[in-house]
Simulated assay, not measured.
Amino acid sequence: MKWDPNKYVEFGNHRDRPFHDLLGRVQSSGPRKVVDLGCGPGNLTATLTERWPDARVMGIDSSEEMLLQAESLVKATTSGEQSGRLEFAQGDIATWAPDADTDVVVTNAALQWVPGHQEMLGGWLRSLKPGAWFALQVPGNFTSPSHTLMRQLAESPQWASRLNGVLRHDDAVGSPADYLGIMLDAGCSADAWETTYQQVLPGEDPVLQWVRGTGLRPVLAALSREESADFEQEYSAMLREAYPATAHGTVFSFRRIFAVARKNA
């Protein structure tokens, strides 16, 4: 599944806010190594060099398209004495493990793409050194109309043969309580919560434009260009009914799940 970095960063203020809300609960004062798992186009990863000026920041992502965009930030972000503080590397989250010197791990809107990540999380936490931090954010909107209508259409007689098994939902993410329990069991002090953002999106068919950058990607990857256009035409009509436009724009409720852990001594 290929990603479009430019499409992904649309609605930047809305997409960026959960990242900053998550980082607000990470109280690491002087980390030396910070890892961003599933860094995407790297724009948010680059802000970690400002948050922790003495840290080496490594962004990891599996998408070549995303990393190509991220690499363009390196030269613009680091120079002189700061050279080498921001790095990006291609890698699979499912096979990643923290190094012994890792102080902070951040993963923002990425783990929902990794089957079995809850089991992996326990192993990552147990591998962290005492005092290290792990912060995650995942979308919790798999029961919202944007996703239920997508699945409903994908499972319809017209599309079922082409899209069977493409969309995950039941096991994509855990609840705040699930992540809290994993973190506590791994010997961490932990905090977990959820927030539903009421986002006012401008423009024509803005919810369709939103999911094109993320949740709709597996569908588009499985269909031809002509089939994708037909699917989107049906899906957009369903979205307009579920999310009617107002004089102020289209209100899009988006639930996010957060969890932050600090490894105990």
Rank of each mutant, 00 (worst) to 15 (best):
P5S: 11
N6V: 10
G12I: 15
N13G: 13
H14L: 12
R15P: 05
R17P: 06
P18I: 04
P18W: 06
H20I: 13
D21W: 02
P31N: 10
R32H: 14
R32M: 12
G38Y: 00
C39R: 06
L44D: 02
T45W: 08
R51V: 10
A55D: 10
M58N: 04
G59V: 06
D61S: 08
E64R: 13
E65W: 10
Q69V: 11
E71S: 11
S72A: 15
V74I: 15
S79M: 07
G80H: 09
Q82V: 07
S83C: 08
A89S: 13
A94F: 00
W96A: 09
V105L: 04
V106R: 05
V106Y: 07
A110P: 05
L111R: 02
L111F: 04
Q112F: 01
V114A: 09
Q118K: 12
E119N: 07
M120K: 15
G122Y: 00
G123D: 13
G123K: 12
W124R: 07
S127I: 00
W133I: 02
F134E: 01
F134K: 02
T143K: 11
S144W: 12
S144K: 13
M150I: 07
Q152I: 00
S156K: 05
A160M: 09
A160I: 14
N164C: 02
D170N: 12
V173H: 00
S175W: 07
D178P: 03
L180T: 01
G187V: 05
G187R: 06
G187C: 09
T196H: 06
T196N: 05
Q199F: 07
L201P: 09
G203P: 08
D205G: 01
V207T: 09
V207M: 05
G215Q: 04
R217Q: 11
R217P: 00
R217E: 04
P218W: 06
V219I: 15
L220D: 00
A221M: 03
L223S: 13
L223E: 11
E226Y: 09
S228D: 06
F231L: 08
L239T: 02
A242V: 08
A242F: 02
A242Q: 03
A245N: 02
H248K: 15
T250Y: 00
F252P: 07
R255E: 09
K263M: 07
N264A: 01
A265Y: 11
